[in-house]
Nucleic acid binder design. Structure first.
Lengths: 258, 258
DNA sequence: ATACGTGGTTCAGTATAATGAACCGAATTC
DNA sequence: GAATTCGGTTCATTATACTGAACCACGTAT
């Protein structure tokens, strides 16, 4: 009878767990499921799903359309600010990009780390299409992404090892680094250079540079990255780009700490 | 034994309701409460609070600091996008502001309506300080704010009346309109002009102009407003500013509908 | 040293929230 | 027009998630 949940175990507050799954579903896809569809997707009895959905609507977590479908409510927006640092982070990011014309040619992303993953919370696309779209809320394994490496590099080695002690994520491309030792070298290089590099480890034809943003406490509150096509990434230019990125990150960090 | 809950009734999925209250608390103030504090604030037994909080941490809704305090987790960020329209809305807003130098002199805000309130989901401050900061997640009564009036104006009169059928919100300044009749005139003016006006009804020394953003369905998905000090708001300039705002709103709306 | 306050953990008992079967209405399909 | 599917609602039953009391661990004041 015990449902097998992979990864993380969990036994209590089922209503909350289900609500989170529903919100993930509704937010993660463009589909606008109705109550019956959600009930099926979650394997819940109809009556249970209806009760839960009604409560979620009442709480403002969901809204329901005229056709009975559910879409995300506005209430979660109250939370995306949160700590002082994070409240201001997203606007600050977009704001600052506007004042950096040199970055206009690149797709620039903002993300935070959640465990061994990075979650994208901001993105400004370049005029040059990348062939990849970073959707807000998207998650990628931290060890492969530029932002992830920049954020990991800001942690003590022991913590990195602990975070990645679980099963190593499946590689996304043949270039994806495999294993803690290889990552260690990249982390060291990141610390030395002040910026991180994802050389085709997420998408083979994409190169990304990353840097951490630090709040007043010096902690890495988030990370930013610029992404470009490999064909646009002359190797000689990367250090220059990295320096510009690191400088941008420092500027934003200063404003976070103000 | 039945706890008296004002306003909205509610009986089921208590875990979810409590989780929402906790997130509201944690996100709403800069305080970093610990488990015992939250347990007290919610009137929950310690053991219940601990179980709930542990689950919330596991789900990524909360994070716990080294000192045992709780702060907002990153998981909710996955939801703030949500529907296609809203996923793109916030970046689109910031993105578009960057290309409108004429707006740089004003504080520009983006918000959505939740019931009879507006919730701020984006803000780009002007170089000229306003003396007010619009925090993401902040809420104000819709009838007093420029955005709120613009959003209300896009609804049929009957719906407005129903939304505001409850007790009228306490006025924020002596200029705050009081009563449905007075608001009706403002709504009519908004519909005629294509933009709305808050003339010191939120803060006496602040004037705001608002306009609605419409998605592909023509529905008002959100609203934007520009805010300026009364001393900067020569009465003759308001129509001109309003026209510019309405035009900006139309442009963003078009990109929402694409 | 003792008493006290605070924050956290454990666990059996029970109030309570999830369940699923039955029922209803509407829209399709045969 | 009967049968079927689909979405939604209701309600008695029961599994289960919450409760509260007892118990640690620690720091501080008496």
């Amino acid at each position: 009878m015990q449902e097998i949940e992979p990864g993380a175990g969990g036994g209590s507050v089922p209503a909350l767990r289900r609500a989170v799954r529903i919100l993930d579903l509704v937010a993660g896809s463009t589909a606008r499921p109705n109550a019956a569809g959600l009930s099926r997707a979650l394997g819940l009895p109809k009556s249970t799903a209806h009760g839960l959905l009604a409560a979620m609507v009442e709480l403002g977590l969901l809204e329901r359309g005229a056709d009975g479908s559910y879409r995300l409510g506005v209430h979660p927006m109250r939370w995306t600010g949160g700590s002082v640092a994070r409240t201001d982070l997203v606007p600050l990011f977009y704001d600052h990009l506007a004042s950096r014309p040199a970055l206009a040619a690149y797709t620039v992303t903002l993300s935070v780390r959640e465990g061994a993953e990075v979650v994208y919370i901001g993105c400004r696309n370049s005029d040059r299409p990348l062939g990849v779209t970073f959707r807000i809320g998207m998650r990628l394994p931290a060890p492969f992404t530029a932002t992830g490496k920049a954020l990991l590099a800001s942690l003590p080695d022991a913590e990195i090892a602990e975070l990645l002690s679980g099963p190593w994520p499946t590689r996304l491309t043949p270039r994806s680094v495999g294993g803690l030792a290889a990552l260690g070298a990249e982390i060291a290089a990141t610390r030395a250079a002040g910026y991180s590099l994802d050389d085709g480890q997420v998408r083979e034809d994409m190169v990304c540079l990353g840097a951490a943003l630090r709040d007043h406490s010096g902690q890495a509150a988030a990370g930013m990255a610029i992404s470009l096509l490999r064909s646009d990434a002359a190797p000689g230019r990367l250090p220059e780009l990295g320096a510009m990125l690191a400088e941008t990150a420092r500027t934003i960090s200063r404003r976070l700490g103000g």
